[in-house]
Simulated assay, not measured.
Amino acid sequence: MVTNKQLPVIWDKEAKTQLKKAYNKILKESYQGAITVRDGILDTVDKIQEQPHRYPADKFKTNNKGNYRAFELYNYRVAYKITDENIQILRVRHVKREPLEY
């Protein structure tokens, strides 16, 4: 019998801070907008557990063997890494910011 084991999601400390900063920035303009963006990102991260390879390989990761992935939602780009033990959320950045290679 085959079982689909969901990997736990681990948020990098900096990624948590980046999401909080984005939320607080949007909150200055719109309470509902801030909630929508935050909840949308968190819901999408939850869906990654079901299908970690759902999103394309991160084009900004040098020497990426396919375990670094990213998705964009509400003009925010979320980068994550898939390991044998977990899914690590690495970065939350606005898409208009200069992309960082890593």
Rank of each mutant, 00 (worst) to 15 (best):
A34Y: 00
A15T: 01
K21Q: 12
P99H: 07
G66D: 07
E98L: 03
V45R: 05
K25P: 02
Q6E: 14
K16R: 13
T3Q: 06
I48P: 05
D12N: 14
Y55I: 02
V2F: 07
Y23R: 15
D46Q: 12
A57F: 00
I82P: 06
N64E: 12
H94Q: 11
K96D: 09
K16W: 02
L100P: 00
E85Q: 10
N63T: 12
P99K: 08
T62V: 09
D46R: 04
Q6W: 02
L7Y: 02
D12Y: 02
R77G: 10
E50N: 13
G33Q: 08
E85A: 15
E98W: 03
V78E: 12
L100G: 07
L42Q: 15
R91A: 13
Q32H: 08
I41H: 09
P52W: 01
I10N: 04
P8T: 15
V37D: 07
R38M: 07
L73C: 06
H94R: 06
I41E: 14
N75D: 13
D84L: 10
A15K: 01
K81W: 01
Y68H: 12
V9F: 01
I35W: 04
N24R: 08
Y102K: 07
N75T: 11
L42Y: 04
K47G: 13
Y76M: 10
D39W: 01
E72G: 08
T17I: 03
Y102F: 11
E72K: 02
V2H: 11
N24L: 15
P52H: 06
L73G: 03
D58M: 06
I82A: 15
K61I: 06
T36S: 11
P8E: 10
Y80R: 05
Q18V: 02
D43Q: 10
T83H: 05
D43A: 15
D84F: 03
Q49L: 14
L42M: 09
F60I: 00
R97T: 10
N64S: 11
I41V: 12
I82N: 14
T44N: 06
R77W: 01
Q51R: 11
F71N: 13
P99V: 01
L27E: 05
Q32M: 12
Y31A: 10
T44L: 15
G66N: 04
Q51T: 14
K20G: 05
Y55L: 06
K47D: 14
Y74A: 15
L90D: 03
Y68G: 03
E98M: 05
D58P: 00
Y31V: 15
K61Y: 03
I82R: 06
Q51N: 14
E29H: 08
